[in-house]
């Protein structure tokens, strides 16, 4: 936990934040996850996951490793099948992967044999658009992520952050109903990750897109999201759906604001409940031989 107990309750919302949630609640549901369960053999990975994502909402799914959050997003993407429950996109059940649910993976997954431009064109070409049309559209998206200078580069010539920007442009070019992001910045160094987070918020402001974002980083979740779905492990289940009280527009200065910390502490409490990490007494092994022991 970041600081003492003189923080506001994370459920208290400033008027403008409350107004925003009231507005979101009126929007249509894009994604509905209904009592989703997943078994791998006899191991229960997910149990009774239920939540909604509304139009243009930014929802983070947060949990410690092993709580099934990646499985959840892969089921939503259609890359894996659920054992029970249902997923509705615009009210219709989803079956298999499709371009209406764009996905950004942690390990970039750019096609190494295609240039940046051809990567972004991929989905458009699959849709059957002509090369000319796809090219024009792809260039718009590439310019939106600020990589027009690199449109003829191949993925191996780009840095991790640039690759992920291409991956975002590639997913957005399909104009998906929802953008699924599976720990997209997990492989980046801290500084690049911070840049990419700010970048993503900028894109989300400018592009009318709904985002479901998986992360294990508490700061990231509170910084980015409208709502945070906190998952617990064994089996993966919803601990709480938190309405993020931090007002928008977000900035990194908010990281130390009381309202940010109140949300942060609540999540931290959920993921690592007091007493969940046993304090073991470990014997000290001395490695000194020349009698230079220190206390």
């Amino acid at each position: 936990m970041k600081r003492g107990s003189d923080l506001p309750d994370y459920r208290e919302q400033a008027p403008e934040v409350a107004a925003r949630f009231a507005k979101i609640a009126l929007r249509p549901k894009i994604l509905e996850v209904r009592a989703l369960g997943k078994m791998f053999g006899s191991h229960e990975t997910l149990r009774d996951i239920t939540f909604d994502v509304r139009r243009r909402e930014f929802v983070c799914v947060l949990g410690a490793s092993g709580c099934g959050k990646s499985t959840l997003i892969r089921i939503i993407a259609g890359l894996e099948t659920a054992t029970s429950g249902q997923i509705l996109l615009d009210g219709k059940p989803v079956r298999g992967p499709g371009p209406d649910r764009g996905m950004v993976f942690q390990n970039y997954t750019l096609f190494p044999w295609l240039t940046v431009r051809a990567n972004v064109m991929f989905g458009l070409r699959m849709k059957g658009k002509s090369a000319f049309e796809a090219e024009t559209e792809a260039r718009q998206w590439i310019s939106m992520v600020g990589l027009l200078k690199y449109e003829h580069a191949y993925p191996h010539e780009l840095s991790g952050g640039m690759k992920q920007r291409v991956a975002i442009a590639r997913a957005l070019a399909n104009r998906p109903r929802i953008l699924l992001m599976d720990e997209p910045f997990g492989a980046l160094d801290a500084q690049t990750r911070a840049q990419m987070q700010a970048y993503l918020l900028k894109i989300w402001r400018n592009v009318d897109v709904t985002i479901l974002f998986i992360t294990h980083d508490l700061d990231e979740a509170v910084y980015l999201s409208d709502k945070i779905l906190v998952l617990g492990p064994n089996p993966g289940r919803v601990l709480e759906l938190i309405e993020n009280p931090v007002p928008r527009p977000r900035s990194r200065e908010q990281f130390v604001s009381p309202v940010f910390l109140s949300a942060y502490n609540r999540i931290s409490e959920l993921i690592h409940p007091p007493g969940s990490i046993p304090v073991e007494k470990v014997p000290i092994i001395r490695m000194t031989m020349a009698g230079d022991d220190v206390e």
Partner: peptide, 15 residues
Amino acid sequence: LDPSLLEAAQTLGAR
């Protein structure tokens, strides 16, 4: 071949 490339292609609409 990296299987995640096949997954990525499918989420981009490749049949």
